[in-house]
Simulated assay, not measured.
Amino acid sequence: MDTTATGPTFRDATDADVVALVALIESAYRGDASRVGWTTEADIIEGQRTDPEGVRQVIKSSDSRLLTVEQDGRIVACCQLEHRGDHAYFGMFAVSPTLQGGGLGKVVIAGAEQLARATWGVSEMHMTVISVRDDLIAWYERRGYRRTGRMTPFPYGDERFGIPQRDDLQFELLVKPLV
């Protein structure tokens, strides 16, 4: 066991992080590299998950923060927090596939919830998850999120979000009270 390893550090992303963040997000969800971890969407959506412009927009938005998580000098996870009135939106969540299953995701989501409460005083965290991702939804439920049954359509035909491999994709809103 390497005793020189340090725990994760959180910071706001900068323009200098865009390329690394796009690579991280893509590796966690799309293509063969994503199959190393359990969050892969490779069997239901092909193509890209995000692009440099999408990541840059989150970084530049006055109502958003793109948290970058580093460990041992490299970016290993990220997530978006967006202030939306009485709640915060949690998105663009990615953990390096080789580190999935080791507890880093739990640390990141807990840190994001704490930051949203402290920064914006919000009472809830919202997120959307592809409704057929039962394993991922179950993971969020174990973290205190609840399914709402409120669905929004998948953006079929907009390849910026990928190329769906099935015709029943939609997003379900998950909500967690932040107490």
Score class of each variant (00 low, 15 high):
residue 91 G to N: 10
residue 94 A to I: 11
residue 98 T to S: 14
residue 83 H to T: 06
residue 14 T to S: 12
residue 84 R to K: 15
residue 122 V to A: 05
residue 24 L to I: 05
residue 166 R to E: 12
residue 69 V to H: 03
residue 80 Q to W: 01
residue 101 G to D: 04
residue 87 H to C: 14
residue 159 E to W: 02
residue 145 Y to C: 11
residue 26 E to I: 14
residue 111 G to S: 02
residue 5 A to F: 05
residue 168 D to S: 11
residue 111 G to T: 02
residue 90 F to R: 10
residue 72 D to W: 01
residue 145 Y to K: 12
residue 147 R to N: 09
residue 21 L to V: 15
residue 103 G to D: 05
residue 70 E to K: 09
residue 49 R to W: 02
residue 74 R to N: 01
residue 143 R to T: 11
residue 174 L to I: 01
residue 24 L to M: 06
residue 8 P to I: 15
residue 71 Q to V: 02
residue 86 D to K: 14
residue 140 Y to N: 07
residue 8 P to S: 11
residue 158 D to I: 08
residue 107 V to P: 01
residue 153 P to S: 10
residue 60 K to E: 00
residue 62 S to N: 00
residue 48 Q to S: 11
residue 171 F to Y: 15
residue 66 L to R: 08
residue 13 A to F: 04
residue 30 R to T: 10
residue 156 Y to M: 01
residue 98 T to M: 13
residue 159 E to P: 00
residue 65 R to W: 00
residue 46 E to F: 00
residue 102 G to K: 15
residue 5 A to Q: 13
residue 72 D to G: 02
residue 93 F to M: 10
residue 78 C to R: 06
residue 1 M to P: 09
residue 61 S to C: 00
residue 54 G to I: 09
residue 152 T to D: 11
residue 127 M to W: 07
residue 154 F to S: 06
residue 70 E to F: 06
residue 38 W to E: 13
residue 68 T to C: 10
residue 10 F to M: 01
residue 125 M to E: 08
residue 25 I to Q: 10
residue 82 E to C: 09
residue 57 Q to G: 00
residue 43 D to M: 11
residue 103 G to C: 04
residue 5 A to T: 15
residue 76 V to R: 06
residue 86 D to M: 14
residue 36 V to S: 03
residue 71 Q to F: 02
residue 51 D to A: 03
residue 106 K to P: 00
residue 131 S to I: 15
residue 18 V to E: 06
residue 46 E to C: 00
residue 61 S to D: 09
residue 60 K to H: 08
residue 164 P to Y: 12
residue 32 D to K: 14
residue 89 Y to P: 00
residue 171 F to M: 05
residue 79 C to I: 03
residue 74 R to M: 03
residue 44 I to F: 07
residue 165 Q to C: 12
residue 6 T to V: 15
residue 78 C to T: 14
residue 31 G to F: 04
residue 52 P to F: 07
residue 140 Y to H: 13
residue 129 V to F: 10
residue 7 G to F: 00
residue 48 Q to C: 08
residue 16 A to N: 13
residue 97 P to I: 13
residue 119 T to N: 02
residue 144 G to V: 09
residue 118 A to R: 13
residue 175 V to D: 07
residue 6 T to D: 08
residue 110 A to Y: 09
residue 18 V to G: 05
residue 49 R to I: 11
residue 7 G to R: 04
residue 110 A to C: 05
residue 172 E to M: 11
residue 80 Q to K: 15
residue 176 K to N: 02
residue 149 G to V: 05
residue 27 S to P: 08
residue 82 E to K: 12
residue 135 D to I: 13
residue 137 I to K: 12
residue 143 R to W: 12
residue 135 D to E: 15
residue 139 W to P: 02
residue 114 Q to R: 15
residue 22 V to I: 07
residue 76 V to G: 04
residue 69 V to M: 08
residue 174 L to T: 03
residue 57 Q to V: 10
residue 79 C to W: 04
residue 2 D to Q: 11
residue 165 Q to E: 14
